[in-house]
């Protein structure tokens, strides 16, 4: 059983981050991660290989999150500040903290399926094939959702009048 510990433990930060970005509430997100861990431990033999563990855990978490989101509309109007308060306080400038906030708000306005792809691929570094497995959709659908998500997020940021500033700011940072 000690291999369970070694395989699961390093993934906890990423699982918590994905859960919170989806549910936008710290307590509910950690509840979800706890449910995921309990399920993973009791169904440990259903994994195919050790290398699969990451995608497998994300798949369990994702499915539990979707069930919860469908049931509890409550999460849809929770304060966005609960997602990543640390990001706003640790931002190098107040201006940048505000942009993080705007970006996360725009992210929250994306349809769930697009948001999930963007997070799994862009933030959690899952391969396109692993994202397809987690979401249980064909690879082509992953690519088209990713494309739509990026286009829409860019538009949302445009309408907030932030993208151009964000771009120039980024160049300064780099």
């Amino acid at each position: 059983m000690s291999d369970i510990l070694q395989l699961i433990e390093p993934l906890l930060p990423a699982l918590r981050r994905y859960a919170r970005a989806l549910l936008r509430d710290r307590t509910q997100a950690d509840d979800l991660v706890q449910d995921t861990l309990e399920r993973a431990v009791s169904h440990w033999d259903q994994r195919r290989t050790d290398r699969d563990t990451r995608a497998w855990l994300f798949a369990i978490l994702h499915n539990l999150a979707m069930t919860r989101l469908r049931r509890a509309y409550t999460t849809s109007h929770l304060s966005i500040d609960e997602v990543a308060e640390g990001a706003f306080s640790s931002a190098p400038s107040q201006e940048q903290g505000m942009r993080y906030r705007e970006l996360l708000k725009a992210l929250a306005r994306l349809p769930e399926d697009q948001r999930a792809v963007l997070l799994l691929v862009g933030v959690e570094d899952l391969s396109y094939a692993d994202a397809a497995r987690v979401l249980d959709i064909p690879l082509g659908t992953v690519m088209s959702r990713l494309s739509r998500a990026r286009e829409r997020l860019a538009k949302e940021m445009d309408s907030d009048g932030l993208s151009r500033q964000a771009g120039s700011h980024l160049r300064r940072v780099k």
């Binding site: 059983m1 369970i4 510990l5 699961i8 433990e9 906890l12 930060p13 990423a14 918590r16 981050r17 919170r20 970005a21 950690d30 991660v33 706890q34 861990l37 309990e38 431990v41 997602v83 990543a84 308060e85 640390g86 990001a87 640790s90 942009r99 993080y100 970006l103 996360l104 992210l107 963007l118 997070l119 862009g122 933030v123 990026r150 997020l153 860019a154 940021m157 993208s163 964000a166 771009g167 980024l170």
Partner: peptide
Amino acid sequence: YTDQRDWLRAALAPIAEEPIPSRLNVSRLL
């Protein structure tokens, strides 16, 4: 899109830096 990706990672990174709450202690759960 690349900027967007970098910003999203930066905005969400602090969540992964937080200490793991004790109720998510895997060895205790096991």
